[in-house]
Measured scan of single mutants.
Amino acid sequence: MTEYKLVVVGAGGVGKSALTIQLIQNHFVDEYDPTIEDSYRKQVVIDGETCLLDILDTAGQEEYSAMRDQYMRTGEGFLCVFAINNTKSFEDIHHYREQIKRVKDSEDVPMVLVGNKCDLPSRTVDTKQAQDLARSYGIPFIETSAKTRQGVDDAFYTLVREIRKHKEKMSKDGKKKKKKSKTKCVIM
């Protein structure tokens, strides 16, 4: 069974824990209790493949930012979460993405942009803004509501699919490099 290491990042209060708990335990946590770091595991079937999701729910508070490099190193894919009623959390996505790329030393890291709290009427981040940002990053965008469960499975499952595509691409690139290195030079 394939294991996928997913990391949920975003500013404090955007609903990272609520999304994760909704996926794992099928219930909505409405009281806000700032996370330092929590880890969850769940076995699911995605596109006919049974897999184990190892999900790291991270601290959004700035005082825990020193811990970010460590979990970013171990993560295979990242859910970059903002709240649709919090423009600052949307603007912060850029910083999370840049930090992930720096730590992973790669421009090509599996990510999904997630606009959470889409059940709320007080939207300050337009869907088109988020779609445009995701398009500019070359990553999928999904709106979710941890409260109603809308888009929750889709967000995590899409990230797994992005990781699969990335692994497939990397193995193809690896095979191309191996083929090239088999060419021999004969000096007579």
Rank of each mutant, 00 (worst) to 15 (best):
L6T: 02
V7I: 10
V7M: 06
V9A: 04
V9K: 02
A11G: 05
A11R: 02
V14C: 11
K16A: 11
L19M: 10
L19W: 03
I24H: 14
I24Q: 11
I24E: 14
Q25I: 01
H27E: 12
F28K: 06
D30T: 06
E31S: 09
Y32M: 08
D33R: 08
P34F: 08
I36Q: 13
E37N: 15
D38A: 06
S39T: 08
K42M: 07
K42N: 07
I46P: 03
D47N: 07
L52S: 14
L52C: 13
L53P: 03
I55Q: 07
I55E: 08
D57A: 06
T58Y: 09
Q61S: 11
Q61D: 12
Q61M: 10
Q61H: 08
Q61E: 13
Y64R: 12
Y64V: 12
M67K: 11
R68M: 13
R68T: 11
D69T: 03
M72D: 06
R73M: 07
E76S: 10
G77V: 11
G77R: 00
F78S: 01
C80V: 15
N86T: 04
N86S: 11
K88L: 06
D92Q: 13
H94A: 12
H95R: 13
Y96D: 01
R97G: 03
E98M: 01
Q99S: 06
Q99D: 01
I100E: 00
R102G: 09
R102V: 03
D105E: 13
D105A: 10
S106R: 05
E107M: 08
E107V: 13
V109M: 04
P110H: 03
M111P: 00
V114W: 00
G115L: 11
N116A: 15
N116V: 15
C118M: 07
C118G: 11
D119Q: 01
D119M: 01
P121E: 11
T124Q: 11
V125E: 13
D126G: 11
K128A: 14
Q131I: 10
Q131G: 05
Q131W: 05
Q131H: 11
S136I: 09
G138C: 02
P140F: 08
I142D: 01
A146G: 12
T148S: 11
R149L: 12
Q150S: 03
Q150A: 08
G151L: 04
V152I: 14
V152P: 03
D153I: 15
D153K: 14
D153V: 14
D154V: 08
D154Y: 09
L159I: 11
E162T: 03
E162R: 03
R164E: 13
R164V: 13
R164M: 09
H166Y: 13
K167S: 06
K169G: 09
M170W: 03
K172D: 13
K172F: 10
K175N: 14
K175C: 13
K175T: 08
K176T: 10
V186T: 15
